[in-house]
Simulated scan of single mutants.
Amino acid sequence: MRYIILVSHGEFASGLKNATSMLIGSQKNLLCTGMLDGMGADSFVENFRSLIKAITQEDQIVLLADLAEGSPMTNALNTLSECGLMGNVIAIAGMNLPMVVTAAMLDEDLLDKEAVAQAILEEAHNQLRTMQLDIGEDDEI
């Protein structure tokens, strides 16, 4: 099974999970946890360990985080390593909603880590753009 795990500062990860569920329905393989205001690393790691308890070495993990070198990402990677799960981990920072939706909708048979990462990043990049607005003086916003 492919698990998508969202980690972030604050409630960003849970907000993305909620928004993803609104768009494509609830996904049993979409997990999340956040480092809440005032929470120490030990509490975050405890929550993360509980989150990944059912994951085995045969499973693939797409770990999406808000910041590349933030505490949630580094603590999650350290915990995955301690649990012997790093062999099938794809870790991507700078997560956004298109990234999460794409990860959740990817064909489960696509196992190549490079192809999975490329598909997720490609869609995230495609959604980053400046919107050109032609608004006249009489137009309402």
Rank of each mutant, 00 (worst) to 15 (best):
F48V: 05
E140C: 04
Q127I: 07
M1Y: 08
Q57T: 14
L16C: 08
L30V: 00
I135K: 13
L64M: 14
D66Y: 04
D59G: 02
E69D: 11
D109V: 12
D42R: 09
E108N: 12
D107Y: 13
N88I: 02
M22E: 00
E69N: 15
V45S: 06
N96M: 12
A54D: 13
P98A: 13
S43I: 13
I120V: 12
Q118K: 15
L111C: 06
E123K: 09
N29L: 07
M35V: 01
M39N: 03
V45R: 12
A117F: 01
V89M: 14
L97Q: 05
E137G: 15
I61C: 10
L51Y: 04
P72F: 01
N75L: 14
A115S: 15
M39G: 00
D109S: 15
Q132H: 15
D112N: 15
F48N: 08
G84Y: 04
L67E: 00
N75P: 01
R49V: 03
Q60A: 08
I55E: 03
F48L: 13
D42H: 11
M22Y: 00
I61Q: 06
G25R: 15
D37W: 10
G10M: 05
Q27D: 02
H9S: 02
L97W: 04
K53A: 14
H125G: 13
A54W: 04
A19I: 07
E123N: 10
L6I: 06
A124H: 02
L67N: 10
V45A: 08
A13E: 05
I92E: 01
I4S: 06
S50Q: 13
I61S: 03
L80H: 03
A115Q: 14
D109Y: 09
S71V: 12
A65K: 00
D139G: 02
A41S: 14
T130K: 06
S14Y: 03
M99I: 04
A115I: 15
T79V: 08
A93E: 11
E82K: 13
S26K: 15
Q57C: 07
S50K: 13
N18M: 10
Q27F: 04
Q127A: 14
I24A: 08
M95V: 11
Q27P: 06
T102P: 00
L16M: 13
L51N: 03
L133P: 00
S14P: 01
G87V: 07
L77A: 11
M95L: 14
E46W: 04
I120L: 05
M105A: 09
M22G: 01
T33K: 14
K113L: 08
E69K: 12
M105E: 09
E82Y: 07
T79M: 09
I24W: 14
I4M: 03
G94E: 14
M35R: 02
A93P: 09
R129M: 09
E108S: 14
Q132E: 12
T56H: 10
I61H: 06
I52Q: 01
P98G: 08
G38F: 10
L77G: 05
E108Q: 08
L16N: 06
N47V: 00
Q127D: 06
N47L: 10
H125V: 11
A91F: 03
I52W: 07
A13C: 11
R2C: 05
R129E: 10
M95A: 09
L128F: 04
L51E: 02
L30E: 00
D112L: 12
A65P: 03
M39I: 07
L30S: 08
N88W: 04
E137S: 09
